[in-house]
């Protein structure tokens, strides 16, 4: 009897635990539509977005070689990200990984630029707000000799582009053979 009670108790506890684990994972994922916010710093600005009373950190301004391409003021942004355990940046909970995609329709309510504050710094910024030091923020590694590729068979490519927007030059980086652009944002897979 005691064993049965113990088993029932264990099973009940397990049942209670499982949904919690699922909720916990779900709680880490944040998908929302909100206004982007610029938090200036002494160097480059941070990009934030507020959702349900919490401020989330999306990324910083660098250049077009970055995987994170900042959103647009004047438009809401679709944010899809996972809450990380990293310390807050510019006051925002860090979402990593994160993809952002500006909505096509203008929204004049998205117009917040917060002035620089001493407490917010971005020492990890790979380039200053002005001219670069001569390299892109995320310079593509030099390519070695081309690896042998199968001449036939399926190959997979990832093409990133903004929500409901045309593919741009930056999106087409893998095909344009330019080292100064990187794929980004919402991901679609295509096979050929």
């Amino acid at each position: 009897m005691k064993n049965n009670i113990a088993r029932i108790a264990l099973f009940a506890a397990l049942l209670m635990t499982l949904p919690r684990q699922g909720n916990s994972q779900e709680a880490q994922r944040k998908n929302f539509l909100s206004c982007p916010v610029v938090q200036d710093t002494k160097t480059v600005p941070c990009w934030l977005s507020e959702y349900k009373g919490e401020l989330y950190y999306l990324g910083i301004q660098t250049d077009i070689s970055a995987e994170f391409h900042p959103p647009y003021l004047g438009h809401k942004v679709l944010v899809e990200g996972i809450v990380s355990d990293e310390p807050r940046i510019c006051g925002g909970v860090v979402l990593k990984p994160v993809v952002v995609s500006p909505m096509p329709e203008p929204d004049s309510s998205c117009n917040t630029i917060l002035p620089a504050l001493d407490k917010y710094t971005v020492p990890f910024a790979p380039r200053p707000p002005g001219p670069s030091g001569g390299t892109l923020a995320f310079q593509a590694p030099r390519r070695g000799p081309a690896a042998e590729q199968p001449s036939t068979g399926p190959r997979e490519f990832s093409i990133y582009y903004d929500f409901d927007q045309p593919v741009t030059q930056a999106d087409m980086q893998p095909f344009s053979l330019k080292s100064w652009t990187m794929p980004r944002r919402s991901k679609r897979n295509a096979s050929s």
Partner: peptide
């Protein structure tokens, strides 16, 4: 070197730099 907010400039802010971008 003098930075300012470049804002709402079509084909500049839209190429991946964001809007606005603090640049020169």
């Amino acid at each position: 070197f003098r930075t300012f907010w470049i804002k709402d400039a079509m084909h500049l802010n839209t190429v991946g730099l964001g809007n606005p971008v603090k640049r020169t």
